[in-house]
């Protein structure tokens, strides 16, 4: 018997790593290179059909983490899974992701998450070396190289997260 599940999924990461672009690519299939900073939170829905389960992902596109404007715990609360987004062209975003990961753990416990190394289309400009990526993977983080611009691995990342949620 088919089931419909609703899940709150948070997108977390430093500012301008491409969270909103990833959601836009995943939900609407479009990409704009115009940068619009997200204020507060923007919510979108995407339904995924996995076998006999329909997962309605409520995507909480939270504003980027900044030193002066932290992501409030209230947005994290109740998340069934989350995506940590890292901008490959800025290595500092890895540290931000680590901090957010720690706070998320404290708030919602051990829930599934996937790490997105975004902007793979700009690989030439990457600050992250393969060694850095390997280090991140060694921490047990599941990493996917994504690009909201080309759409590479975007759908795969969300499907992977949904799989983990219903497992």
């Amino acid at each position: 018997m088919s089931r419909i599940l609703q899940k709150k999924v948070c997108l977390l990461g430093a500012f301008a790593v491409g969270k909103t672009s990833l959601v836009s690519r995943f939900v609407n299939g479009i990409f704009s290179d115009k940068y619009l900073s997200t204020m507060g939170v923007k919510i979108d829905r995407k339904s995924l059909q996995l076998d006999d389960v329909t997962v309605n992902m409520m995507l909480w596109d939270v504003h980027g983490e900044e030193s002066v404007k932290k992501v409030p715990a209230a947005y994290m609360r109740g998340s069934a899974a989350y995506l940590l987004v890292i901008d490959g062209t800025r290595s500092a975003t890895v540290d931000t992701a680590r901090e957010l990961h720690a706070r998320m753990r404290a708030e919602v416990g051990d829930v599934p998450f996937v790490v997105l190394l975004n902007k793979v289309d700009l690989k030439d400009e990457w600050e992250l070396s393969d060694a850095d990526v390997a280090t991140i993977r060694e921490e047990g983080w599941e990493c996917l190289m994504t690009s909201a611009c080309t759409g590479e691995n975007v759908e795969a990342a969300f499907i992977r997260l949904a799989d983990q949620m219903i497992a």
């Binding site: 609703q6 979108d44 829905r45 909480w60 947005y75």
Partner: peptide, 19 residues
Amino acid sequence: QNADLVSSMLTAIQDFVRD
């Protein structure tokens, strides 16, 4: 149709205001 979005957004607004 968009009730689930509205629901999430209402909650987000609550959180936003509280924050």
